[in-house]
């Protein structure tokens, strides 16, 4: 595999023709026990098709971030089943789940969560080092190209502290996409950005669906959600409605 191949806009084949990329069934996440328990999500059924841009909206505490974390595999459901890319991830052990994340999902965080001691290109390279078996030179080249694609070719050797919030988030997107995952989960990626930067980041993520990547986009911003293929509304940990917009499908 060469660096260009890693980033080439070749549509990702769905795991099984016609199947959903994400299949959540009766998905429940409860924190704590007894009287102190707190419901994150409860009885969620959701299917996300390959190449789809799905926006998850809802008021604070509605469970949208919890749902995103479950789909991304950085949290585990209390009950229910969750199949992503044909793999049942709710039963995976910690290390299996970590390995699965490295190869199958890209995550974009509201707070970026870049490694503060690594430069932009090193942060992107890190995803390749953890998620795939690529040689050091190829890895570096692929990371540089990923940064080019998000418009940060000239910032490759800057540290996160030397970049603006918008730039850091674009590094975060480059890091999430460099491994060419079938699924990208973005948890309020524009939440910490101004409107212009927010739209630029959204455009980058929306553009990924053209290459066949599935994007689950968690947001408060209804304007951005309107541009999604489907909008999943959540209230009190449950899916209140699913609106098909059809724009990108």
């Amino acid at each position: 595999m060469n660096a260009t191949a890693l980033l080439s806009p070749v549509p990702v084949a769905p795991p099984t023709a016609g199947a959903s990329l994400v299949e959540a069934r009766d998905l429940t996440r409860i924190w704590g026990k007894g009287d102190a328990s707190q419901i994150g999500v409860s009885g969620v059924d959701l299917d996300v098709r390959p190449g789809e841009l799905v926006a998850v909206i809802g008021p604070s505490g509605s469970g949208k971030s919890t749902l995103g974390a479950l789909i991304a595999g950085i949290d585990r459901p209390t009950s229910g089943s969750l199949v992503v890319s044909g793999t049942r991830i709710d039963r995976m052990k910690t290390d299996q789940l970590a390995a699965w994340r490295g190869g199958n999902v890209g995550i974009v965080f509201q707070d970026f969560h870049l490694l503060p001691t690594l430069t932009a290109v090193e942060n992107v390279e890190l995803a390749l080092e953890l998620g795939s078996r690529v040689g050091r030179r190829q890895r570096h080249q692929a990371a540089l190209e990923a940064l080019e694609l998000v418009g940060l070719g000239g910032h490759a050797h800057k540290l996160p502290a030397q970049m603006s919030g918008g730039e850091q988030q674009r590094v975060g997107i480059a890091r999430a996409t460099v491994t060419r995952p079938a699924l990208i989960v973005a948890d309020e990626p524009t939440g910490a950005l101004d409107q212009a930067n927010g739209h630029a980041v959204f455009d980058l993520l929306a553009g990924l669906t053209r290459t066949g990547t599935t994007v689950v986009f968690i947001t408060h911003d209804l304007n951005l959600a309107d541009a999604a293929d489907r909008v999943v509304s959540m209230i009190d940990g449950r899916v209140a409605s699913v609106d098909e917009r059809g724009a990108g499908s």
Partner: peptide
Amino acid sequence: RHELAALQALGARRRR
């Protein structure tokens, strides 16, 4: 701990 958690989110196993 955020750095470690971010690494885990990127796919770092405990061994790493």
